Computed example of a mutant assay.
Amino acid sequence: MLEIVTGIVLAASAGLNAYIPMLGLGLLSRFTPLVELPDGWAWLENGWCLGVLGVLLLIELVVDKVPALDTVNDVLQTVVRPASGGIVFSAGSASDTVAVSDPAAFVASAQFWPFLLGIAVALVPHVLKAVARPIVNALTAGAGAIAMSALEDLGAVALTVLAVVVPLLSLLLLVAVVVLLVRRMRRALRARAARRPV
């Protein structure tokens, strides 16, 4: 049961930032005894993979803090974040995941469902983020982009680490993050509606 909680929280973290949970799992597996990735997902701890993920994360950290570019980034990340969610859910939840050498066999196996569930879970925070960001940018003349992005990144880091170390606490934090995102979006929508001329 805890493996499923870990997978759900990691996938939700990927919905905020695609690269933090993948990089986190890879680093934790490579340098600590906290995570032992299954053979099929051991590529996440490969030096080249970690390097590429690190570069992509740096690009994401910069682009996501620039108003207007953050919205374009969210559109582009609509494919990347759910895919990352599927990967980290599968890698984080199933210690006996096998390598995908035959895609048809993978689709027919039970291992396909964790990947799909991870995609679905990652879509929720991604959609909330993608909808809230332009509204926050419009209401704050772009000043809110840096703060929102920093909070999302910190949330993704905290969720990733806690998903591995204390899964149930991470689930509570995830619920809190989703509630805060929904409340923030509602507040922003109310403020936007109040500013419109009648």
Rank of each mutant, 00 (worst) to 15 (best):
G54W: 01
R192T: 10
V79L: 14
T32K: 12
A42F: 10
L76V: 13
V161I: 10
L128I: 10
V157S: 01
A145N: 13
L174T: 06
I59F: 15
S109P: 06
A132H: 09
E60T: 02
L53M: 04
A176Y: 02
S95R: 07
F112I: 05
S95F: 12
S109F: 09
V100A: 11
L34G: 06
V166H: 14
P33I: 07
E36M: 07
S149V: 09
V131D: 02
W113F: 06
R196S: 13
D102F: 03
V75R: 11
A141P: 00
P125A: 02
E45V: 07
I87N: 03
S13T: 10
F106R: 08
I146M: 12
R81L: 10
F89V: 12
L151S: 14
A158M: 15
I8G: 03
L117C: 13
L173E: 09
P134E: 09
A141N: 07
S95V: 07
L173R: 12
L23F: 09
L169Y: 07
T32F: 14
Q111P: 04
L117I: 15
P125I: 01
A143Q: 13
W43S: 02
G54V: 00
V136Q: 08
P33M: 12
W43P: 06
V72P: 03
P125G: 02
S29V: 02
I8K: 01
S84R: 05
A99C: 07
G40Q: 01
A11N: 08
A130L: 04
G24Q: 04
L56S: 15
I20R: 06
S84P: 07
V98C: 03
L50V: 09
L181K: 13
V164E: 14
A176F: 10
G85C: 03
E36H: 14
L50F: 11
T71A: 11
V63N: 03
E36Q: 15
I20T: 05
I119A: 00
V121A: 06
A194I: 00
A156I: 12
D96V: 08
V35M: 00
P38S: 13
M22C: 13
T97S: 05
F31T: 06
D64L: 09
Q77M: 10
L116A: 14
A91I: 07
M22L: 15
